[in-house]
Simulated assay, not measured.
Amino acid sequence: MKHLAERNGGIDILRGLAVVLVVIHHMALRIPLAQTGLATIFPLWLLKAFSGNGRSAVTIFFVISGFLITSHTLKRWGTLSQLDWRSFYQRRAARILPCLVTLVVVLSVLDLAQVPDYTIEHTDQSLPRAILAAFGMHMNWYEGQTGYLPGGWDVLWSLSIEEAFYIGFPLFCLITAHFSRFRAFMFFCLAFSMPLSLAALTHASPIWQNKAYLPGMSAIAMGVCSALLAHRISISRRTALRSLMGVTSAIVFSSYLINAPFFWNTLGSVGALALTISTAFLLIAFSWGWMADYTKRGTKWLRSFGFMSYEIYLSHMFVVLPLIALFRISGGNMYIGWLWFVPAISLSWILGYGVEHLLSRPAGRWLRGRPKPQIIDPATT
């Protein structure tokens, strides 16, 4: 993990926290922490908050993705108007395709072999359509229409939203090359459209409410806006602003993860902006060096999760589902069920490490056609 020393510790901590929350959430769906022995030690609201933030974690991923993609674009080409769309797509393909293709191949083999927990069983679903949805960037829509796919396939819903956004991102930047203010305004409108898009989904199916395109793209756009803002503010003003921005956003961010229902009950769908805005401001503060000395002390384990977040996100169900099967075979003692979360997190890291070192890194270097790896763009989850 020598790359960790060269990366922004705060941003990697956010990514690491998000992917750990996803792993915990998928375990907790099958072993509810509120039904384990932890309920005799911790309040139920805290256990439910700790295990129920899977959707919030994906939203965090979206904001981080938009921030880093835009920041790297500005660093590489100076402005969004000068973006090289061929290079942009090449880098996205190098980052996304190796893991995506491998995952789809493995899941297809498991489905054809009728392996439990990996077999597509809904009568209105099929393996060819699942493959098409995975590569056609509409896994979220497909599940919204037909129901949940097995867990290994289900994680691809967020990737569909993200990659659909990035298909249009460079084209929009080039089309609006001479209208930078209009472009910024459109990203701003999209970023703050989440309350309206969520309100419009009130009567939609529960799956589509959580996986629709517009709310996810709104979160990505918030990341884009935050990167543009961070880039425009002069260096001389950053030191004065970063502490206030960092502390305030950290309080709101933590409060939302601990008690999201409070924000929703108080503000309605507008409450969702508390998470995206606080995440965006945290990213700005971290990018300006806020807490730089502290974010790298004793956090290597969490930062390593952030470094491999894409690999862990796509592969962790190969850990979660077998562990749940073993839990049930062993008798399914719910009281000590929380103990199974420890190997779930640890083994997810080990599997992600193997995927990153043996697949993502070498395949990405080969697809980019460069002798040394460049800064890795993020992906969700």
Rank of each mutant, 00 (worst) to 15 (best):
C189R: 01
G352K: 07
F327D: 03
Y294R: 12
S346K: 09
G268N: 08
A94C: 05
G337P: 03
H203R: 10
D154L: 14
P261D: 05
R237F: 09
T248L: 11
F341V: 11
P170F: 06
G52S: 07
G354A: 07
L112E: 15
G37Q: 03
I233P: 04
V101D: 00
F62D: 00
R129W: 15
I324G: 04
W85R: 15
I350K: 13
H138K: 03
I167V: 15
T266C: 07
V320L: 03
L74A: 04
F263C: 05
S360L: 01
M334I: 15
A344G: 12
I69H: 01
M194I: 00
A28T: 10
Q125P: 10
F172V: 15
Y294H: 13
H26M: 04
L97F: 15
V19N: 09
M334C: 04
G151L: 09
T79L: 02
I258T: 08
T381I: 11
D84F: 08
I376E: 08
A363G: 06
L257G: 03
G168Y: 04
S330W: 12
S348N: 05
L47E: 04
A164Y: 08
S87V: 03
F253M: 08
A219E: 00
F188A: 00
A344S: 14
V105K: 06
L46R: 02
V320H: 03
Y89L: 02
L273S: 02
W288K: 07
A5F: 06
R129N: 15
A240N: 06
L257R: 02
H72M: 14
Y148L: 12
V19D: 03
I167W: 12
M317L: 15
T248F: 11
S360G: 06
I64C: 07
I131M: 05
F42A: 15
S309M: 06
W301K: 10
L358R: 09
H178Q: 13
R365G: 09
I258A: 14
S304A: 14
P128K: 11
P343D: 09
V319D: 02
N8S: 09
L156V: 10
F187Q: 00
V319H: 02
W264A: 12
A379L: 13
K372V: 11
V63I: 03
V320M: 10
V20H: 02
